[in-house]
Design a binder for these strands. Structure first.
Lengths: 236, 236
DNA sequence: ATATGTGAAACCCTTCACAGCT
DNA sequence: AGCTGTGAAGGGTTTCACATAT
């Protein structure tokens, strides 16, 4: 299949074809009227725009279950990410190969980052260690951090943080599940309405989990754009 | 701190106070004019609305590194989720305690789901097993699935699927990282513009990773709402 | 005096529809 | 004839600003 139309791509992706064309148009005019998009060329252009053609060395700090799972995750390598180093604070872990890469000791963190030109770090440590690790990463020159630890990280201006909270995904499912349950009844509905489930616009269910932090020295304030945060006011 | 104002909460959450008030208003009128919101009452109301006050038994299938990491993840229990069972297809895993819960064999999946009234399942299997596990979960009565396997799942109408692709988060960071790099130069900018980085509206960077699937028997088509999908057209 | 709750305005994103190119 | 690229319309969400309540 040498070429593809916006209609076909849109159907495959589950979006409107006009939106797809408009989105593509922000990258440039890579289509041919009357024909469609040259698949190979389009793939290359999108890859380049997304940074997939670059080599991104990353370091991962905290090689517990989650860290090991991430290191073994296939999706990374195929998208231009190269695990430059696995780092842990447990001397017993050091030297152990995880996903074929020997774990290094945290004392060497700065050296590793510098030598490999790493600008992206992944934190999969326990909550208590995360901020400290984060500070060291930033001081060593890392400017993007993916945080799996259940803590909000403070970073200086110019550093991007993405927080992945795995339980929020479950929470969103539970929220929908609750609504499904509420809609069943029909007759019993009114009775069960002691704690009524009011009509909530789509917004009430935020698009997704990770809270983009970036920017400010403290947390979030002022961050604009379609970030889809879960309300920050979240009872434990 | 017995009460809190929308202004304070908004600052803490990094959003506009009017938006916060409007959002809260969809849940009801839980504030007091001239005073603010009673913290305890507000927390309770939000918890109830989000389903945090309910008990949500879940099953997790596929207890590899990721499954074990999830089972150990602290955030679940504190939000009303109870791991009813860990299930794996590897007989060698069966009986082994992970996060204090013994792993059960996959043959008992249906029985486990029924006995525990489970409606939410988590799939952390390899890609190859995911669809099959998904089908069994659905057949057994599960109506919400959190999918960590790198596959798109097909589910019947009425079943919600959330897919978490951990590498997409990294990709978003890399995308920003690329832009940061592009903005440095200043003078060298024009020269390096052989492959210019065009102005892309905020939309170009989707809010977040997980692709809400739900609904249709096949994938996505027609799904509306602020889902923040990554473009589905994604080169390997 | 102070802070909520909410119409109305502003803004942004999505979709329509068609001119323009192959 | 067919499909892209895009101005304009439409729809939805965010912010403003103030009437209303304590």
């Amino acid at each position: 299949m040498p070429t593809v139309s916006s209609e076909e791509l849109a159907a495959a992706a589950g979006v409107n074809s006009a939106k797809l064309r408009k989105d593509f148009s922000y990258l440039g005019s890579y289509g041919t009227r009357g024909v469609g998009y040259d698949v190979e060329y389009l793939v290359y252009q999108i890859s380049r725009e997304l940074g997939l053609t670059q080599d991104w060395p990353i370091v991962m700090v905290g090689i517990g279950n989650l860290g090991a799972a991430l290191a073994n995750y296939g999706g990374f390598a195929s998208r231009g990410f190269r695990v430059a180093a696995l780092i842990d604070a447990d001397p017993a872990m050091v030297g152990k190969p995880v996903a074929g890469i020997p774990v290094q000791y945290i004392d060497d963190l700065e050296k590793i980052i510098e030598e490999n030109g790493v600008s992206i770090g992944v934190i999969a440590t326990p909550a208590g260690a995360a901020q400290q690790v984060c500070d060291r990463l930033v001081a060593a020159g890392v400017t993007s951090i993916l945080n799996f630890a259940p803590t909000v990280l403070s970073v200086p201006d110019g550093v991007d943080v993405r927080k992945v909270d795995l339980s929020i995904e479950l929470q969103i499912l539970a929220f929908h599940e609750q609504r499904k349950a509420g809609e069943e009844g029909g007759v019993a509905e009114a009775a069960a309405a002691a704690a009524p489930v009011p009509a909530v616009p789509a917004t009430a269910v935020p698009p997704a989990a990770p809270v983009r932090t970036g920017g400010g020295s403290e947390q979030a304030p002022g961050r604009k754009g379609p970030d889809g945060d879960m309300p920050a006011v979240m009872p434990a």
